[in-house]
Design a protein around this nucleic acid. Structure first.
Ligand SMILES: [Zn+2]
Ligand SMILES: [Zn+2]
Ligand SMILES: [Zn+2]
Ligand SMILES: [Zn+2]
Lengths: 160, 160
DNA sequence: AATGAAATGTTATTATGTTACATAAACATT
DNA sequence: AATGTTTATGTAACATAATAACATTTCATT
């Protein structure tokens, strides 16, 4: 799941998807929480692409495979679960969600969000992590959940 | 308008407010845009505190001094204007707004947001600015508008 | 005063997210 | 297996946040 550039151009997304699901199975096992059918379905929808997707769009894609009529709260509950277990992230600047695509190893996540094509690259760099915590510390501020969403234009979109 | 800690404990907020309004008058003059009654009223409401405030809360505080019935869109239009002219900022993680309280000098803004008391400290540091642009560059990503909202607990809340 | 551009008024609508309470499935204990 | 307990899901209504579309007014310039 190493990315080389913003569009993940060289990566096999089928592998990528199955890695995300496998990670989820493993982590839920470890954490003693249940990776239910609905939670899996929502994660699979997220993992379909590296673009952020809104809850109501997820709902639309969810409905065809649902066993009964599905309400928004079902999606939000699944998303809450995934986010709590670090299997997905919410992008506040878009009111949208992505599957987690990196191993954080205790570091905060950062996102590069292309305004044009909506692709999201997830980073988890030591340098940014450190810079953030250093600035916060000097203001005597205890960081719990930084939201670092770097909006701009990806290389592919810039060329075109 | 220099801040020493998160709660701006040592600052005279009356000065702070009038500085915000004066800056706005000056900037609008410079930019050849109109600092109308409504825009001023919304900025004054924002400048009342360093807490983020939602558009509908602004609306409630706006109504008593309004000349006629006021709809949400009025507030949003004023906010759009203020944000465009860098006189206010939107905090995506809260769906809320604050008056700008620093001079940016070409640097991006960053925010420390206390989850407990809702206070917002605005930073505009070179070190964070650089760290962000450096990481983006190495992903061949062109930054336009980073959203850096560092959520956590301020020193005052931590003590209590 | 006539003109055009910017700002505001008015109403309705869309988008996003939550509450409250009922039912069902999974798990643990006897 | 029967029981109680927790966790997950179903269902409906509601709450909050933001925008669209179009009419009217205000302001600066001619
Ligand atoms: Zn992929
Ligand atoms: Zn992640
Ligand atoms: Zn102040
Ligand atoms: Zn600012």
């Amino acid at each position: 799941m190493e990315q080389e550039n913003f569009h993940f151009s060289d990566h096999n997304h089928e592998n990528c998807k199955s890695a995300i699901i496998k990670t989820a199975e493993k982590r839920c096992e470890e954490n003693g929480v249940r990776f239910t059918r609905q939670r899996r379905m929502v994660l699979e929808i997220l993992a379909e692409s590296h673009q952020a997707i809104g809850a109501y769009d997820i709902l639309e894609r969810f409905k065809p495979n649902a066993k009964s009529r599905t309400a928004p709260v079902t999606i939000y509950r699944a998303l809450d679960f995934l986010i709590e277990n670090n299997l997905a992230h919410r992008l506040s600047s878009l009111n949208a969600f992505v599957a987690c695509s990196t191993t954080h190893n205790g570091l905060d996540a950062q996102f590069l969000v292309c305004k044009k094509c909506q692709y999201v690259a997830e980073l988890s760099t030591n340098s940014l992590h450190k810079a953030i915590h250093k600035e916060a510390e000097s203001a005597e501020f205890t960081v719990t959940s930084p939201m670092i969403e770097i909006r701009g234009i990806c290389s592919t979109c810039k060329k075109s």
